[in-house]
Design a protein around this nucleic acid. Structure first.
Lengths: 341, 341
DNA sequence: TATTAGCAGTCGAATTAAAGGAGTGCTAAA
DNA sequence: TTTAGCACTCCTTTAATTCGACTGCTAATA
């Protein structure tokens, strides 16, 4: 494939991303390649179609990028510097605000990306079940109520409220605290399970119900942090592809299927941008969309995964540029600010 | 207005709620009033139109209820027993599960209502800033990090994490705990403000930054609980009125305007169902929708407010029946289970 | 051999015309 | 007061037509 064909393919994708309309040979000549004739472009387009990079919507229509065309475009034809000084400043300001919890950072990052890219953005925080426990605290909030607080080695704090059907005493709580800490410090969160329940019961001989309840609630809490953040849900709605009610409904449905979104986000690889174009998505409902994910991490510290969902003709250049830039900021912040998270 | 006209009006509203199509005199005769002729119905309809209860979409169309018509319908023509045994059982099962936090109950109630009514449901928990403080605890999570836990007299628990730029000691934390409790126990949450900040500084002479930070974070936390729960966002999308892109976009926009929804919910009156039909909504974007709100409470214990949003031809009967039934269950549960919430 | 001008042919989108039918309002009779 | 019957309205659907933006191909040109 010669250089001119590449330029034409790139022009077709760029133009289609901008206008959402099939691109004609004339448009290419007028806006991109004024020094060749439309007939030449037509010849090249015919060949590009033959090898599968572009398609026609009907016999006499202009061309539209195919999945293969988009793929070549993002893999080879794209430069990732599509981010303005204003945007850089905006992102910097947003991410500079001091946050107390990693969740808050995740939330702010998510909304910032959505605002800059104008696409729907989802994200999930770091997986806590894989993290190691730094400390567990139990705080009594009444005779039958406890708050459990877990601090992980990555500085993430989780807490939950536990209620009992019977009274507990401060002494019991203290004993529990000691036992949990001595047994679990440095271990991963998913060590809190059935065997531990039995172990504690054997050690302390408290009411099995109390111990059961505690373990259950902590497990529930760990599971609960697979929480999805979603920003800019209606951002896509002004795009022409959403004129089709089918597309719009598919989109709304997919956003409501938390599990699907979580699967996609969690399949990410650390520090790597992944792009799923149309049919490349496992999920049938996503066939008309592209998803770009990025799993942020600093060292071995997982900062969660962010995903952007847009039409297949999404502005890949802008999205990827923003992702890369935000990743750099997160890296810097976390290197200089130390380990607390 | 004679009895027959009322019956015809009711039939028109019922039929329109079911079909979303203008209702003809023939339909009334066939499905509702087989013993009178369509000409008679036409005469009555002409009069109902004259006094403003129904409207035509064009000269030779059937009739559609006007805002005034809906209003009469919900005020006078409706029976609130539109709830099946299966639904009663379903609701009962859902709400019976033991919950640890009022927020969880709010969430479950919201999703249950949405599932039964098939309409989008929003809700907000009880307003915490008006509640009185039962106890405040500070838990150290490291030399520069604290968790503040506030238990209110209604049994609601709020917590937040506070980070400092300088070290604090356990003694300081204990002193703060004592001071906060002695000063604030029994007082309302919005007492935590600037004057308190000064008072504490004068008493303890700790770094003003520490005290400032604590007060700020607690205020942030209190504000944070104006959180909106939303279920069944895409429930309405199958309704014919959502074929119009304008209507659909208005709907999506309104759901994204948290503040608008909060205003509507918080304007509610305790234990009273409020119905806003079309233009009766203050918000322009809601002119094509109806909103029904119910502020649940048991005694003086606010359980939060639930709102249902649907088309103007929403199934008022079903929605209101469900609301009333759920309110009864919440009342019972909270009477028998005691005050913990 | 690569490029280009020119033109026939295709097909969707927009416009217009016509037909069909679901309703109403009104009149006059029961 | 109710009802049958009929003229009239106007929306909806379908079909026919026009319009124009494309392409592909051929033949000429550099």
């Amino acid at each position: 494939m010669d250089e001119r064909k590449k330029k034409i393919l790139r022009a077709i994708v760029d133009e289609y991303i901008e206008t959402a309309e099939p691109v004609s040979s004339n448009t290419i000549v007028q806006k991109y390649e004024p020094n060749i004739s439309s007939a030449t472009v037509r010849n090249d387009m015919a060949e590009l179609e033959k090898i599968g990079y572009i398609e026609k919507t009907h016999t006499s229509s202009g061309r539209v990028p195919s999945a293969k065309g988009y793929r070549l475009y993002v893999d080879e034809l794209l430069k990732y510097d599509d981010i303005s000084l204003e945007e850089i400043k905006y992102i910097g300001d947003k991410l500079e605000t001091k946050v107390n919890q990693l969740e808050e950072l995740t939330r702010i990052t998510t909304s910032t990306i959505s605002e800059i890219t104008h696409y729907t953005t989802v994200s999930v925080g770091p997986e806590s079940s894989k993290q190691n426990i730094e400390e567990i605290k139990f705080v009594m909030l009444g005779a039958r109520m406890l708050m459990a607080i877990i601090v992980t080695e990555l500085g993430i704090i989780k807490e939950t409220i536990i209620k009992f059907d019977e009274d507990i005493t401060q002494e019991q709580v203290d004993a529990l605290t000691n036992l949990f800490n001595s047994k679990l410090k440095g271990k991963s969160l998913d060590m809190i399970d059935k065997p531990l329940e039995e172990y504690i019961f054997n050690e302390l001989h408290y009411s099995i119900n109390i111990i059961k309840t505690i373990i259950e609630e902590i497990k529930k809490m760990i599971k609960d942090d697979e929480r999805l953040y979603l920003e800019g849900r209606n951002k896509n709605f002004d795009l022409p592809e959403f004129k089709s009610l089918d597309v719009a409904r598919n989109f709304i449905n997919i956003l409501d299927e938390n599990d699907t979104m979580l699967d996609i986000l969690k399949s990410g690889v650390a520090d790597d941008i992944q792009i799923f174009i149309g049919d490349e998505n496992k999920n049938e409902e996503l066939k008309d969309f592209s998803v770009i994910t990025f799993k942020h991490s600093v060292g071995n510290k997982d900062l969660g995964t962010i995903g952007i969902i847009g039409p297949k003709r999404m502005n890949y250049s802008k999205v990827i540029s923003v992702m890369k830039y935000i990743n750099r900021i997160l890296n810097n912040n976390n290197d200089t600010n130390g380990k607390e998270g």
